[in-house]
Each structure stands twice: as structure tokens, then as C-alpha cells.
Write a protein that binds this DNA or RNA. Structure first.
Lengths: 229, 229
DNA sequence: ACCTGAACACCGTTCAAGT
DNA sequence: ACCTGAACACCGTTCAAGT
């Protein structure tokens, strides 16, 4: 049983295989449980039991539940970072890739959106994402204020879509087809536009996300052209 | 004490002034409490006490807490409806107004975003908002599929911004100025673009929201022009 | 028929008591 | 020094018992 403890040879605890619990291990276990059971059902008791520990021990590493979940959020943002392409491509491709990386990461961790969605990401990984996008925009020729507004718009747009990922089948299009049927049976006199559009509903959240993302980027391109560059 | 009970003259209860509690009254009280204390701190016990009733009585009107909060959400969407202008203006102005109405409503009820944000609004008021926006888009000449994608993009974009309204001072720009200072003190070698942009950060969430909304609408205009109309 | 107090099975958080 | 069981003050939900 290999442990990163160079000094300690014997563990004083009577039970074997119980090294000092590292922060990262707690965070990883918490993410696993949130992914599996949802943010609402996740509890510190559940986490403690999963780690063969007690809730009081968790308070030795984190000041409270919110602090712990912030750590989990930061680790999720770390996954986004690994999906960003190097700064080489065209600025539109870079922004597209950054938004996609954020979206796809939350597709893997849909229950984490509610944990991260209402905060400005100030941790290491959140800052790196911000830096990546701002650099792409500044290099493209946008003024700093426009760049930071564009950053917020793209990330908030993405968060808005991600917040629906927790719903059942929202990414497979199953729910979309159910909606299609529901909208189609509404009273055409009261909801004419909704009934007309119902048969042409997109097949899934991801398609809708990519469509609107393109709109945003086209809006940005227009902005750049008008400024003459 | 005027009550909407034409038949009943005397109330059997020993305590005076306790009519049968209408659903709407419960919802209104719940919204008041969520606005005042936040969605997390809101509890059924709190609501029952506020109504001089008991939690068990609430289960007579709603099947559970989620059901009750869905009712509160529906009533909030009712406020959006009252802020929509009549269908006369240009399509861009109508979409702008609809998104603004949604945003401003959540500015008044920031803690309700987390309750409504992850659901497709299928209640009466949600459908009316959808119909309003879809009608504007179809009248403008957009194809049904594009119209429904545009609807989702605009509403999700708005929800994404609204989800940050619960944060302290996010609408006044106080938090923005704090961020500005924080970003300005970062290491310029590691975060060059962030440091460059820091002094030009927008002053508040509302400005950023309106900027990105314009981008989306410009993207839509471009879409319409290219299709030739 | 309608409402309620009290119970049940949980929470997050704290702390005296153990090793 | 570090960890823990048990306690504290809460939850959402249910139900026998009251009127």
C-alpha cells in the first residue's frame, strides 16, 4: 500500500490502510458522488461514509459544505482547460472551442452547473479559461472592454444552456421529441406560432447550443467589421 | 374581513379570521419569503408559521415542496407577461423587450432563478412568453426551426445572466469594481490579456447582458439578410 | 371534513471525549 | 495531534389523533 508519506513508517491507527486523507481525494470522491446522485442528494454524511471516515473529519479540510463544493467546482473547471486547443487557430475557432469545452465538460458533470453557475470563477482554472478567451479576443483586434463583455456573454450563454443539462434526456433529444408532441397538441387559436414551430423543433440541446453560439460569434464578427479591421 | 365565500356564513374554527387558505395566497407568501431569505433558507416550516398554519396543511394544496416552488415560478413568469409590449414594433425591438422583461423580472426575484432555470417553462405563462417570441420571429420571416432555436438561445442566454443576479451587488456594479481591482493585481506574465482588460471591465451585469443580447440579435439579422428578405 | 402536533428519517455543524 | 460518536438545531414528509 503505497502512500506519499516519506517520514512516517507505522500508522498509529489500529485499523490498517488509513493514511491521512488528502484534499484532492476528498474532492474526487465528492465529484463522483455528485455525478452519481445529484447535487441535492449529495450529503457530507454520504461522503464521509464513502471515505470510511466521519463528517467531522471533513471539517478538518474544508470550512463547510459550500467550501468543499467550491473545491469540486474548481476541479471540474480543470477539465475544461485540458480541452482547449493551443492559440494558433482563427479567433472564431478558438472562442467556439472554448465554449464547447465548457459545455462538454458540464455534459459530463451536469449536476455541477448549479454549484458553479452563480459564481464568477475566480480559482486558478477559471482564470485560465478567462485568460484564454480574452487573449483570443484581444489578438483578434477587439478593444479590451468589448473583449471582456464578449467573454461574459459567451460564458453566461453557455452556462444558461448547461443549467438544463441536469434534466432527463436533455442531451439525447428524447425530451425534445416529447416537447414537440406536447406543443403540437396545443390550441392553434391561442398558440399559433408555437403550434406552427412544433414540428420543426431541434432534436437536442446541443444543436440549439451550437446554433446560438454561432449567432453570438457572427454578431461579434459584424462588430469587428464595422470597426474596420 | 371580506372573504370570497358566498355560502359559508360562520367559520367553524374557534380562532377568528381563518378562512380556507387559497392556493394563490400560499404562493404569494412563499414568493415573499424566497425573495426575502433566499431559496436555500426558505422552508415549509417557515412558510407555515408565516401563514399561521402548519406544514401538514401545505401538503393539502401541494404534493411536495418542489410542486409548491413550481407554482411560485409560474407566478413569477406571470410578471414577465405584463411587461411585454403589444405586437406592433419591429421584430428586433420585440425580442429585445421580451428578453429585457425576463431579465428585469428576475432582477426583482433573483432567488427564483435557481428554481426556474433548469426547467423548460411549460405552465400557462411560460407558454405565453414562448408564443410571443415565436410569433415575432415567424412574422419577421424566420423559418420555424430557426425561430425555435432562436427562442431557446435568447431565453437560455438570459437565464445564464440571471443566474448571477443572486450574488451580492451584481446588478449595481459594486462587485464589478471589486473584480476590476482583483484582476488588475494578477501577475501580468501569466494573465496578460486579463490584466490588460481589467481597467475596462463593464460596470455592471445589466450592461453586459444588453451587450450580448445585441450580439445575438445582430447575428439573427445577419441570418435573415443572407436568406434574402 | 379538515387541520394539527408529534413523530420519522434525514440534514449541516460542533465539540467533548477518546486514542 | 488527530479523529470520532453523539449531540444540537434544523430539514421534508407523514399520520394518528383531535375538533
Amino acid at each position: 500500500m503505497d502512500v506519499d508519506l516519506p517520514d512516517a513508517v507505522a500508522v498509529p491507527s489500529p485499523r490498517a490502510g488509513r493514511p491521512a486523507m488528502p484534499r484532492d481525494q476528498i474532492v474526487a470522491a465528492a465529484l463522483e458522488l455528485v455525478d452519481a446522485h445529484g447535487a441535492d442528494d449529495f450529503s457530507l454524511r454520504m461522503l464521509a461514509k464513502h471515505l470510511n471516515s466521519s463528517t467531522a473529519t471533513l471539517y478538518r479540510h474544508f470550512s463547510n459544505k459550500e467550501d468543499l463544493l467550491a473545491g469540486v467546482g474548481e476541479s471540474v473547471l480543470g477539465e475544461v482547460k485540458t480541452h482547449l486547443p493551443a492559440h494558433e487557430a482563427e479567433w472564431r475557432a478558438e472562442l467556439f472551442a472554448a465554449a464547447e469545452a465548457l459545455y462538454f465538460t458540464f455534459e459530463r458533470h451536469p449536476h455541477m452547473v448549479s454549484v458553479l453557475g452563480d459564481r464568477v470563477a475566480l480559482g486558478q482554472n477559471g482564470l485560465l479559461l478567462r485568460e484564454y478567451v480574452l487573449a483570443a479576443l484581444l489578438n483578434a483586434g477587439f478593444a479590451p472592454q468589448v473583449a471582456s463583455q464578449a467573454f461574459t456573454s459567451i460564458t453566461r450563454y453557455t452556462i444558461g444552456f448547461c443549467s438544463q443539462l441536469g434534466r432527463p434526456d436533455s442531451s439525447t433529444g428524447e425530451a425534445g421529441r416529447a416537447l414537440q408532441e406536447h406543443f403540437g397538441t396545443l390550441d392553434p387559436a391561442r398558440y399559433p406560432a408555437t403550434v406552427t414551430s412544433a414540428p420543426f423543433l431541434p432534436t437536442g440541446l446541443r444543436d440549439e447550443f451550437l446554433f446560438g453560439l454561432t449567432l453570438l460569434l457572427n454578431g461579434l464578427s459584424l462588430h469587428l467589421e464595422r470597426r474596420g479591421m
